[in-house]
Design a binder for these strands. Sequence first.
DNA 1: CCTATGCATGAACAATCATTCAAGTATTCA
DNA 2: TGAATACTTGAATGATTGTTCATGCATAGG
Lengths: 118, 118
Amino acid sequence: MDKELICEVNCIHEEITNEVKKEMLAIGEIQSLSAIFKAFGDPTRLRILHCLMQAEMCVCDLCFVLEMSQSAVSHQLRVLRNLRLVKHRKEGKNVFYSLDDDHIFKILAEGLEHVRHV
Amino acid sequence: MDKELICEVNCIHEEITNEVKKEMLAIGEIQSLSAIFKAFGDPTRLRILHCLMQAEMCVCDLCFVLEMSQSAVSHQLRVLRNLRLVKHRKEGKNVFYSLDDDHIFKILAEGLEHVRHV
DNA sequence: CCTATGCATGAACAATCATTCAAGTATTCA
DNA sequence: TGAATACTTGAATGATTGTTCATGCATAGG
């Protein structure tokens, strides 16, 4: 970012901006948080997560329910896995996926609430 | 999507898949929801929203706090506005932005919780 | 062993998106 | 009324990302 181009404003409300600046999130926090929300921001992944809100499921079942190729499902599962949004468990030939923790559930549920009555 | 390419699985757990299929979200719901999360999924927008969690602020103040050009801030604010994640109020030459409703606050807060202790 | 099944992954392409530059509108103040 | 301020917006570009195709790996069953 080029500091020269940054708004050299006269209108700053100092009391507010000072307070807000104190609470600024660390770069790491911002990046983790945006990575998570970005993962939620894809229709396919969202549908996968919504399935997993209801039950632990194997990849095959997900393909069937979502009517998608297993490659596509698997790729998205990897993204979710890397971000620790889902966990997996191997049982014979199958791999079973479920939501990683309760925060994930709550964020999704809160989002659905918002969408449903606005 | 090409139905021919879709996993013709033998391993379906019918009890589970039937239940999950019943609860499937409508296309509209999925799209609204993913649009919202996608908006959260950008570091710049997230920083803007986090500022607005703390106080109503004018565009200039946001530029100052975030050290960004006012064009960039304004563009992101438009995205947030269109999705009704923030609302605005005009006062003289300034436009003041704030979070649109409490769900937005909760989703952000829940996300932060998740990031902070995992 | 050998084959079939369930799943993961690399590469490539198309589409989406954030940022910047430049210009435009609207309000205030002198 | 004219200039300055606060903000918006369109167009262009460069980067990121989702999906597909093709292949690879591991386990189960015969």
